[in-house]
Every structure is written in structure tokens, then in C-alpha cells.
């Protein structure tokens, strides 16, 4: 789970407010990818991350997720396949570093970073259960919300079970050493993992039905989301902003095709 508990400004916002703001930033950055706009958005997002107290967690995730991607982007666009008629900055034999190639790579990297940070900031500061409650209030079906939350916990659950299986089979003399031995060990490890997961599905379906998951009538939620008139207005503005950005872009494309 990526969520980092806290009580900063972003943590206190309604999940939908954060989602709407993130959507606006992402749409604006992809419709109008100009360097000043992208740099401005990045600066704003980083300031928000600092204010929310999640910058320390955000940066390592960004580095591990985006650094390889961005590095290969600069290599491909900037060095190996520059745009036609590009101005050479440095040439080393057949390899040319071009200004246009670097600029193009920079724009794509900027968009990626803005999108990634905007979404990560939302996830880092929103408890997944709150996110599902928020999405439920605008029409996400309860079953879809349930599946979303189960999927989030599936990975730690499977990791714990894999550990228990490894213990059980080692206790039966299974060597989990190197090379071929490791390959031979696979059925004894994967078999119980699959069977366990499958048989759990039926039992869990029974358990949630026995606890009224499909019970008729209105449902309630223990989680109550903080909301106010200002946030509702802000959300409306953000959504209108998204529409405006899209309309503006389409109009500009028509005006100068």
C-alpha cells in the first residue's frame, strides 16, 4: 500500500478534490506541453509534496519508476533517432546529440513527470478506502470498490502465504538452492499457492455474503469524508477547467491545423 498516513493539507482534502485537481493538471500538461507550463506544474506539485510531508517518500518512488524511462527517452530521442533537420550540438562519429532531440525528450519527460507526481501525490495522501468511498459517491459500484480494495491487499497476503509455503516444503527436505534445483522446486511452491488462492475465493465469497454484502437496502460507511462548500466549488471549477482546456485545444487545432 502506497498511502502514507499524515495530517497535512493534502491529507485533509476530499479524495475527489485531489483527483479533480490531478486530472486538471494532467490534462493541461498533455494538451499544452510548453516548457514554462510544465516547469510551473512540476514546481507546484513539488511544493505540495513538501507541504503534505510526503516528499521523502515521493522522490525515491519517482526515481525508481521514471529514471530508467526518462534516461532511455533522452538516449533514443536525443542521441539515436533525432528529428529530421535537427541542429547538432555535439557529434561523435555517427552519433549526434541534437538540440531538437533533447527538447523533444524534455517535453515528453516533463509530461510523464507531471502525470506521475500528480497521481502519486493523490495516492500517497489518500487512504485507499477513502478513495473508494469517494468514488462510490460519484457512482462507482460497490462491488468494483470491493474488488479494488481486495486487489490492494492481495499482494501482501500472497507474500505472507508464499513464505509459509516455503517453510512447509523446506521442512519436507526441499532444497531451494541454485540453478536446476530451484526450477525443480517450483511445483511444490507454486502448486499450494494457486490452490490456496482459488479455494479462498469460494470461502471468502461465502463469508462476505454471510455478513450481508448483498443484503438489500441502503448501506452505510464507517468512513466519513470531510467535505465543504469551498471544496465542492473547487471541484466544479477543476472539472470545468478540464473541459475548457480540451475545448481550447480542439479549437486551436481547427484554427491552425
Amino acid at each position: 500500500m502506497i498511502y502514507l498516513p499524515g495530517s497535512g493539507i493534502l491529507h485533509r482534502l476530499h479524495p475527489l478534490t485531489k483527483l479533480a485537481a490531478a486530472l486538471l493538471i494532467v490534462v493541461a500538461a498533455s494538451m499544452f506541453p510548453s516548457p514554462p507550463l510544465l516547469l510551473g506544474a512540476l514546481a507546484l506539485l513539488l511544493l505540495l509534496a513538501l507541504a503534505a510531508g510526503v516528499a521523502r517518500r515521493l522522490l525515491p518512488i519517482m526515481v525508481s519508476m521514471f529514471l530508467p524511462l526518462i534516461a532511455s527517452l533522452f538516449l533514443i530521442q536525443g542521441v539515436l533517432f533525432p528529428p529530421a533537420n535537427a541542429t547538432t550540438l555535439v557529434a561523435l562519429g555517427p552519433v549526434r546529440l541534437t538540440i531538437e532531440g533533447l527538447a523533444f525528450a524534455g517535453l515528453i519527460a516533463g509530461r510523464l513527470l507531471v502525470t506521475g507526481i500528480a497521481l502519486l501525490l493523490t495516492l500517497l495522501t489518500t487512504h485507499p478506502a477513502d478513495l473508494v468511498v469517494g468514488l462510490g459517491s460519484i457512482g462507482l459500484p460497490r462491488s468494483a470498490g470491493y474488488v479494488l480494495l481486495v486487489a490492494l491487499q492481495l499482494v501482501p497476503d500472497m507474500v505472507a502465504r508464499a513464505g509459509a509455503i516455503l517453510e512447509a516444503q523446506q521442512s519436507r527436505g526441499l532444497e531451494v538452492g541454485r540453478g536446476l534445483a530451484r526450477l525443480r522446486a517450483l511445483p511444490a511452491l507454486v502448486g499450494p499457492l494457486l490452490v490456496g488462492a482459488l479455494s479462498d475465493v469460494e470461502e471468502r465469497a461465502m463469508a462476505i455474503e454471510a455478513r450481508g454484502f448483498l443484503s438489500p437496502g441502503p448501506k452505510t460507511s464507517l468512513r466519513t469524508l470531510q467535505d465543504d462548500a469551498v471544496q465542492r466549488a473547487a471541484r466544479l471549477l477543476f472539472v470545468l477547467g478540464v473541459v475548457a482546456v480540451v475545448v481550447l485545444r480542439v479549437w486551436m487545432l481547427r484554427a491552425n491545423p
Binding site: 478506502a129 470498490g145 480494495l149 492481495l154 443484503s215 452505510t220 464507517l222
Partner: peptide
């Protein structure tokens, strides 16, 4: 599987019956 604490887990059924 959809709740994160013991407290919320017990609440799950009660939310379902509203």
C-alpha cells in the same frame, strides 16, 4: 479483504446492513 484494521473488519457487516 477489503478492510485495513480489525475495527473496520468488524464494521464491514454492519455497513452492509446500513
Amino acid at each position: 479483504g477489503a478492510r485495513f484494521t480489525v475495527f473496520e473488519e468488524i464494521a464491514f457487516g454492519l455497513e452492509n446492513i446500513g
